[in-house]
Design a protein around this nucleic acid. Structure first.
Length: 561
DNA sequence: GTAGGGTTAG
């Protein structure tokens, strides 16, 4: 940098230099500065007498390497205003990348118009940038439109579209496109595979994931750090922690993300000791942990009930200079709450330098409900409803707090409030993979083509479960309906539909694997334990928080979740 | 000098 500024000074003091050679030299300096001192590079741009589009593009790219900022968009706006120099395809690619990182949907749409107007609509780099921009803004359909309009699709375009589907959890579409890509004669590469594996991980599609893994080995795409990390994550998220460990141990080189994936994997499986052991190994391997690693470590402590360990890692994290984020605070509150140390949790929240987010209040509220601390719970719920008055989950929590205290009057008041304010509940949704297709079930929704068979089977299961003395846990059903109807509602919970479908379509010893978007309710947890015993089936449920492995009437979470 | 990728509490 010093040399650059010296040259710069030299130019300024030699006024005899021609305008064009000053422009040229300053542009060169800007080029170097963009990688080292972006703000200096920015001031340079405005000192160049006649900056070319090259300098603008270079500066934009420089900003893209920094923390996310709107600078590339602002530069683009200037270009549009001044009409000179004229943007080229590189400009469009950079500004669209900026819009996808932020993300900035409206600005990106404006850029799209400029792309069409300037006749760059047919450039493959610009098209792929547009496609990626829309999917990053979760506008998958708009992304698909760009994709469909492309006349030539290379591996980058296919991967971007597959990744777009994968990120929003449309696994069937992602995998369908992956197959279509191969039929079209385009060879997938490492990046394609990472997206495909991530789609499997997200939906817990273990069989598909295994198939993709074999494909990767066959094609020799298995020597990539990111591919391996994605595989570790996929096996862990699909409930096969042993296989995750196997892939992880075979990796010749592991960075912080790879270690973190393994540690987080152990954590969600409730394997605290393994998670902490792996963290120790990471230290021995001299790989610096990042903030995600610590989220894994702290959540492992929380799930394993290791309070004093958790405190220890917390203070060593502070010493190591990792700035605690909301997630870290959340882990600590969870650590105390799971151990029923409500006062410690509350004290910890008070010491937080940032305002706790709704999730942290909900953690506290759940603990109050479990410990029947109604007054404290009400106070917390008030804070929560003020902070987030439109989230159905908050009303449901408060309502269940009242239900657990048999305070039916207050409970129906909350339910009424919800109705009056027009709050929509996120429906429970579970999925299970059968023969390479992920079937989705939404609570109370019987639109599945095999709904009739599922209903009949559930009827039979219900009778058998009751036959061994199971009493439905009605307090958790929060609709103002009669007890009989409440039981029916319980039997429509999405995971039961998915489990029933698994019973219908597979035979022991095939494991029934279900992924749920919410946490499992107490009654479903009990019923699933009973089903595992009555039907001699292993059932693995990944809920929003962790794994539950039901074998012979017991769950791996030891009823602690 | 351009486009697509892996880990994150409840």
């Amino acid at each position: 940098m010093r040399v650059l500024t010296q040259i710069h000074a030299h130019i300024l003091t030699h006024l005899h230099l021609s305008l064009s050679s000053v422009s040229f030299t300053l542009s060169k300096i800007l080029c170097f500065a963009a990688y080292r001192n972006i703000l200096y590079a920015k001031t340079l741009l405005f000192r160049i007498p006649y900056p070319t589009i090259f300098s603008y593009n270079t500066l934009m790219r420089g900003f893209l390497l920094q923390n996310p900022s709107r600078e590339p968009i602002l530069l683009f706006k200037k270009l549009v205003q001044k009409k000179f120099p004229k943007s080229n395809t590189f400009t469009m690619a950079f500004v669209l990348k900026c819009c996808s990182i932020l993300p900035a949907l409206e600005e990106g749409k404006q850029v799209h118009k400029h792309v069409i107007a300037s006749g760059f609509g047919g450039n493959s780099f610009v098209q792929t940038s547009l496609l990626n921009f829309y999917t990053k803004c979760e506008e998958v359909e708009l992304g698909r439109k760009v994709f469909d309009e492309m006349t030539e699709r290379n591996v980058v375009a296919w991967s971007a579209m597959i990744g777009g589907y994968a990120r929003v959890g449309m696994v069937n579409e992602a995998l369908g496109l992956f197959r279509e890509m191969q039929r079209g004669g385009v060879e997938p590469d490492e990046v394609t595979m990472v997206s495909v594996i991530s789609a499997c991980a997200m939906t817990g599609a273990l069989d598909l994931g295994r198939w993709v893994h074999k494909f990767i080995d066959k094609k020799g795409l298995n020597n990539d750090l990111m591919v391996s990390t994605a595989l570790v994550n996929m096996y862990a998220k699909c409930g096969s922690i042993e296989k995750a460990k196997e892939v992880f141990e075979a990796m010749p080189y592991k960075d912080a993300k790879a270690w973190s994936s393994m540690i987080v994997g152990f954590a969600v499986h409730g394997l605290a000791e393994e998670a902490l052991g792996t963290f120790a190994e990471m230290g021995e391997a001299k790989v610096e942990p990042n903030h995600v690693t610590l989220v894994g470590v702290l959540s492992a402590c929380a799930h394993g009930g290791l309070v004093s360990n958790g405190r220890k890692y917390w203070s060593s994290m502070l010493e190591s200079g990792i700035e605690p984020s909301m997630e870290h605070y959340g882990c600590m509150v969870d650590l105390f709450c799971r151990a029923n140390l409500v006062e410690d949790a509350y004290e910890f929240v008070k010491t937080m330098p940032i305002a706790p987010n709704p999730a942290i209040w909900r953690t506290l509220l759940v603990t109050c409900r479990r410990n029947k601390m109604f007054e404290k719970g009400e106070i917390i719920a008030e804070q929560l409803l003020q902070l987030e008055p439109l989230n159905a989950e908050n009303y449901i929590l408060l309502s269940s707090l009242y239900a657990s205290g048999a305070n039916w009057v207050k409970m129906s008041r909350v339910r009424r409030q919800m109705k009056e304010r027009g709050i929509k509940v996120v429906p429970g949704c579970s999925s299970t993979e059968i023969n390479g297709y992920v079937h989705e079930f939404v609570m109370g929704n019987w639109s599945h083509p095999e709904a009739k068979d599922i209903r009949e089977l559930l009827q039979e299961v219900s009778e058998r479960v009751r036959g061994v003395g199971h009493e439905p846990w009605i307090a958790t059903v929060l609709q103002n309906v009669g007890d009989g109807e409440k039981q029916d509602t319980l039997w429509e919970h999405s995971e039961r539909l998915a489990i029933a479908y698994g019973l219908l379509k597979t035979k022991a010893p095939v494991v029934i694997r279900v992924v749920k978007n919410l946490r499992v309710c107490v009654d479903c947890h009990e019923v699933t334990k009973t089903i595992s015993k009555l039907y001699g089936r292993e059932i693995v449920v990944r809920d929003r928080v962790r794994f539950h492995k039901f074998v012979n009437g017991a769950c791996s979470c030891r009823d602690f979740w």
